[in-house]
Amino acid sequence: MCLTRYTLGDDAVTPMLSQLHVVYLRDFLLGYLAAKGGLVSIEELREAISKAEEYGIVVAAGHWSLEDEIELLEHMGVVERIDGSLRLVWEKLPRLARKKIEKVSHVLTRLA
């Protein structure tokens, strides 16, 4: 599958369904934070998840909610909650996780 799946032209985005990307919720959360420079409001994150499909990205969550993921990542010190926002603690990320998140954030750049 290729990474570019949008019709060129105006701002209207028409994803080709046969080229959808399925991204797991945890990767989406971290990738979106990275794509937005490491700080984003939880509300914006929630909205990004709900509109991701318009951009050809399917967020697969399983039985974990966004709040479940944030709590766990917060406990591991990978994100920090600042008022209603989340900050990615980049220096806490191991090498391979950084590479993975960079790839996901590349996929999400258009959405962000």
Partner: peptide, 15 residues
């Protein structure tokens, strides 16, 4: 965190 972040699948429905 390295172990936690290596994988991100939580259920077969995602796959």
């Amino acid at each position: 965190p390295a172990i936690l972040l290596s994988l991100s699948l939580v259920s077969h429905e995602q796959l």
